[in-house]
Nucleic acid binder design. Structure first.
Lengths: 262, 262
DNA sequence: GTGCTTCGTTAACAGTGTTAACTCGATCGA
DNA sequence: TCGATCGAGTTAACACTGTTAACGAAGCAC
């Protein structure tokens, strides 16, 4: 009891730093369009490939590690962008965060594939569990919860849900903090899932380029998808609606400036 | 003039058969959970790997070939299912086809990734062009067109569209037959794109398992997404709506029976 | 039959993940 | 402080991958 959290010894700090370098180097490789390989990562770190086995069990573990950390770093990026708007304006923050997510995905398609399109093999429970703590999911759903606290938008009652879904929202296996949601309000989780499916869909379509490049540049598809979600999230008033659309447009304009011309 | 279409010589037939075997064998490999490799394909065909270079330029070409053909075969599958409903009932056919698409994606996640999540590199025009003739896209959009012919559901006027989008729908780079759509009706293509994004999103989420398995089994997320699209497609009447939902439920029930228990 | 083309072979190279055996240095207990 | 221990890293090797080059053996055309 009263344990001091064990001051990290020198070796532990070194080890932690190595882990950090692994994911940083991996991110570099992905950004350069190369593909992630143990040997490439090791080489760029000035090591030989087998040395990496001191840090990851196998290649898949490397991928998982990098995916998890990239998700974390990307989320920090979005959160920072979102903080341009005040804490008591979660809807603005959510809008900005979604745009930042999309921007990140399109700028780093390989990283996106790694984190969000990396097929989860049948029942490898480790990877499932890793998914349920994904930083990005928790961040976005938390923002959505804050929106709900303000607008109290409607969500389906538990008894209106498909029984299986009811069970799923009561004991969710998704990356979201749900412990603070009252049991009778768990229908809210269904909104989490549905809205995530919507933005995930467009972003995946755009990031993998399975979409007209001009449509991607314009951002119109993404915008339309987000705008459709305003009423269900309790944004009814014309004024508030237009305020958010303005924020959205502003973010999308930033993208067009940032990306190179085709 | 009056050319007989050059009767396929023996060699040509042989070659065609070899191509067929390549994609069949590739499909087998993917279905078994193995990953697509030149050597594995060649071995299973009783050949050595370099021999495949007589048929494909390199590995990426193999992937593209297999992706294109799998898409074609899968589409034929969906179309066959859809034909259980009469030709003058395109909405029923579309519903069934979407369910068949989802069923196929979840049953063959690797094939799905190959065809629909395979990132198309920056501006390799060949692959872009291949995408614009994808059989599945043409089939589904054609069904959607038939629905429009019946219900005349509304679509945005050209001048209401983002200028870039307007250009995109007038000269579309998407897998859809658009030549028969009157120029002033090209706003319809925007519906093509948006509805495709919606179903693609859910199916991608489910096929890559980035989703609660129970939600996948229940089919509720997919159902909700499709149901949301009924009104925009001109399905307003309660009767017609319930008829289609019944069809939808029936298809989803089939899935639950077909898949193994978790 | 003589050429030419096409299909397939073997051999080899560079790259991948992965394991085993080994070295060197830091850390810790006596 | 000495000696044991553990941990990070090495090299060598194996079984894979895509890919090229050089070669052989069929089929087809004249």
């Amino acid at each position: 009891m009263g344990h001091i959290p064990a001051p990290p010894t020198r070796r532990e700090r070194q080890r932690e730093a190595t882990y950090d370098e692994i994911v940083t180097v991996s991110a570099e490789l992905l950004a350069e369009g190369a593909d992630l390989s143990l040997r490439a990562v090791a080489a760029r770190m000035g090591m030989t490939a087998p040395a990496l086995y001191r840090y990851v069990a196998d290649y898949q573990a490397l991928v998982d590690l990098v995916a998890y950390e990239l998700d974390k770093r990307a989320t920090a990026e979005w959160a920072k962008e979102a903080e341009r708007y005040p804490e008591d304006d979660p809807m603005a923050r959510l809008t900005v965060a979604c745009c930042a997510f999309r921007r990140w995905a399109i700028a780093n398609p390989r990283a996106f594939s790694l984190v969000f399109a990396n097929p989860v093999a049948s029942h490898v429970t480790d990877r499932r569990e890793a998914l349920t703590v994904a930083t990005s999911g928790c961040y976005l759903t938390d923002l959505l919860y804050q929106v709900w606290e303000k607008t109290k938008f409607p969500f389906p009652a538990l008894e209106d849900l498909d029984p299986v879904v009811r069970e799923a929202v009561q004991d969710p296996w998704i990356p979201a903090e749900t412990s603070h949601i009252a049991p009778e309000d768990r229908g809210l989780v269904w909104i989490y899932i549905r809205s995530w499916a919507a933005v995930y869909g467009v972003v995946a379509l755009e990031a993998t380029m399975h979409c007209d490049p001009r449509v991607i540049r314009s951002g119109a598809l993404f915008k339309a998808t987000l705008v459709d979600w305003l009423p269900p999230l309790g944004i009814d008033g014309r004024q508030e609606r237009e305020r958010l659309i303005a924020i959205l447009d502003e973010e999308l304009a930033r993208d067009r400036d940032a990306w190179p011309a085709p």
